[in-house]
Structures are given as C-alpha cells and as structure tokens.
C-alpha cells in the first residue's frame, strides 16, 4: 500500500495546537496494583497503605509510569474500528497514521504530586510537534504528544511529553 508521508504529515500537523480534555475519573486501586504486578514490581509503596503512610504518602501509590502508559481511558473502540496493526483509529488519543508502522519512542515526565487511588483525574491531550525526517531506512515521522494530568480542580499531577515514530 503506497503511503504518502507528506499526506499523513499534513494531517498530523493540522492537529497541532488542539487540546482534547479527556476525563479519566477516579483512579482505581486495583488498576494501580495490577499495573505494578504487570511490571513485576513488588514495591510495597504500591500495595501497602500503612507502609506508604510511614513514608509520607496519603496511601498506596501508583507506579510512576501508570498514568502516562495507559493508551486508552475509554471503553472502546470495538474490534472493527481497529487498524490492521491492532491500534485504534478513532478513540480520543488516536492520531491519523493509518498504514504506517508505529513504535513508541519514549517519554519525558515531570511528577508534580503523588498519584493515589481515589484521585479524580483529567487529562489534557495534544499533538505538540511533528517532524518529517529521513532515516537510514527511509522517511520517518517523529510525533510528539503532550499529556497533562490534572486533578478535577486543575492541580497538576503529571506532565508527559511522549515521542512516537511512524515509518
């Protein structure tokens, strides 16, 4: 399938400056623990309220990368709305890169306050940069997303800048 990088690049550039606000809702204790289990990280800060309180936290913590690693905060999409590579093409965090091979490039994170179960969280999501580059194996797009996690009353929790690469 012939892909015009320039077309995809123009579609992504059209999103620059648009911010979508995505309600995450109350942080679920079980999700935090399961994330830590999936990482195979048994740190008692993530499981034991009393231990976390002894170390100055209000209760058991989220692993530091929890909020910025979850790729979807909505129920969907249904399977027939997935791209051939399995990624969603129409949820709130989707970026129009149909037909390209995509890979996560890493994140830069600022942690403003600890994340604990029961916090009511909102995410502001935007495409903050897009660059068309020539790699060793051909053209590639480097797209930067910005995710700001805030409490429902607007207090910053985590700021994330994430790069992904589409080829």
């Amino acid at each position: 399938m012939a892909i015009s990088f320039e077309t995809v690049y123009e579609q992504i550039k059209a999103l620059l400056g648009q911010t979508r606000t995505i309600p995450i809702g109350k942080i679920n204790r079980l999700d935090l623990e399961r994330f830590a289990v999936a990482v195979d990280d048994p740190n008692p800060l993530f499981f034991d309220d009393a231990f976390a309180r002894e170390h100055g936290y209000p209760g058991a913590l989220a692993p530091p990368l929890y909020l910025s690693s979850v790729l979807g905060w909505e129920a969907g999409p249904f399977e027939d709305s997935l791209r051939p590579d399995g990624t969603p093409n129409n949820d709130a965090m989707a970026v129009p890169i149909r037909g390209l091979r995509v890979m996560g490039g890493g994140q830069e994170l600022e942690f403003h306050r600890p994340v604990t179960a029961g916090m009511d969280v909102v995410m502001e999501f935007s495409v903050s940069n897009a660059e068309l580059k020539r790699g060793r194996t051909g053209p590639l797009l480097v797209v930067q997303l910005k995710k700001r996690f805030l409490t429902a009353d607007g207090t910053p929790i985590v700021t994330c800048r994430e790069n992904f690469i589409a080829r």
Partner: peptide, 21 residues
C-alpha cells in the same frame, strides 16, 4: 523507573524521569 525507586528507597520522591527507546 523500578530500578531507580528500588535504589532510592521508599522515602525518596521521583520528580522527573525520561527514557528513549
């Protein structure tokens, strides 16, 4: 991140972090 938190201990606070793949 796990390596850093294990090393720094439970009273440490991670305030910034980044990685590249």
């Amino acid at each position: 991140a796990q390596a850093v938190m294990d090393w720094a201990g439970p009273s440490a606070r991670m305030v910034g972090f980044r990685w590249q793949n």
